[in-house]
């Protein structure tokens, strides 16, 4: 069983005299088996408060299992964990947790405001502030106009928006979003990104389960990639994606001019194309200005970096390739 540490809360903790708040999520060797099938193998991680944490993986990797374990919906077969400093499943901690399930379904015979009202009661929100809270989350997810409609008449996208509103009720400190954009159109996806940024701004921790890597890349501070029940990579997203590069197509330069660009970073020349990798993003304008100053003509400038998808696929390929036999 493989156990990997994803991050440490201490690295992000503020240097104050007050006691450190418990991490948003902390697990040690958390495992789940269904008979002979390993759904999650020894998950050890710490998610600091206030981060947007991406939990990535292909279908069936164990992402939803991890969320269900952290929420106490399923029982771990090994290891332990805490959410907001309380053992998994603690009722008081659940008051401060929001959850949008991957399988988002709400009572079709209720109106959207009634669903939110019921969840406000179940979450133990004070009665006097419930209406205001319900209107606030409806507005946040763009359902104010449809708040009095029966859920049964909602499209899947609208139901997912309602699920998001349910998850946001009561300003939770940790929000678990399991594939939150699976039923949304591009506008809806952009809205969800905005909501996640809003959550980060108010200091909430977001645990984002997704296999939509573009979404994750745009909003997450830190990611873990899980495959077949175990974490295969983790870290801040910038570190995971690796170095940036710059490709420039320039004409009118001689070999001396070209070689001088090596001062910006390791240089590769392929015809009119110059590639510098790695390169700091701030020096790109200087590179272009240098080409122009040398009498060259710039036809194309392509800053680049490996996408999360590239990195993800590469990691999965490594995982799936058979191990090499050691030579005697």
């Amino acid at each position: 069983m493989v156990a990997m540490t994803i991050s440490t809360a201490q690295a992000h903790a503020p240097k104050t005299a007050s006691p450190l708040p418990a991490p948003a999520i902390e697990t040690h060797d958390l495992a789940k088996r269904y008979g002979d099938t390993v759904a999650l193998a020894g998950l050890t991680m710490t998610v600091p408060r206030g981060e947007v944490f991406g939990f990535l993986g292909p279908n069936g990797a164990g992402k939803t299992t991890a969320v269900k374990l952290l929420l106490g919906l399923a029982r771990a077969t090994g290891g332990r964990g805490q959410v907001l400093g309380a053992p998994i499943g603690d009722l008081r901690a659940r008051r401060r947790i929001g959850y949008l399930p991957e399988l988002f379904r709400y009572q079709s015979w209720l109106r959207a405001r009634e669903v939110l009202g019921a969840h406000s009661e179940l979450a133990g929100l004070p009665a006097e502030g419930r209406s205001r809270e319900i209107e606030a989350v409806l507005q946040l997810v763009g359902l104010t106009e449809r708040g009095s409609d029966r859920v049964g008449a909602f499209s899947k996208g609208m139901q997912q928006r309602l699920g998001l509103a349910v998850a946001l009720l009561g300003e939770p400190e940790v929000v678990f979003l399991d594939e939150p954009t699976s039923a949304l159109d591009p506008v809806g996806r952009a809205d969800v990104r905005g909501i996640i940024r809003h959550l980060r701004e108010r200091g909430a921790t977001v645990f984002l389960n997704s296999h939509l890597l573009g979404e994750v890349e745009r909003v997450c501070d830190r990611v873990a990639i899980v495959d077949r029940g175990r974490v295969i990579a983790e870290g801040p997203i910038d570190e995971l994606l690796g170095a940036r590069s710059l490709r420039v197509r320039a004409t009118g330069l001689d070999d001396g001019d070209r070689s001088s660009f090596a001062r910006f970073g390791p240089l590769t020349v392929d015809g009119d194309w110059l590639t510098i990798r790695p390169i700091e993003p701030e020096v790109v304008p200087e590179v272009v200005a240098t080409i122009v100053a040398a009498g060259g003509r710039v036809h194309a400038v392509e800053p680049g970096r490996a996408t999360l998808e590239d990195r993800f696929l590469a990691l999965l390929q490594v995982e799936e390739s058979p191990p090499t036999e050691p030579k005697p």
């Binding site: 929420l71 106490g72 919906l73 009722l91 008051r95 949008l100 399988l103 379904r105 969840h119 179940l122």
Partner: peptide, 14 residues
């Protein structure tokens, strides 16, 4: 089966 209880049981409800 429908998933309604996923969100309900994630609340502080025994």
């Amino acid at each position: 089966e429908s998933g309604i209880l996923l969100a309900v049981l994630a609340r502080p409800l025994r």
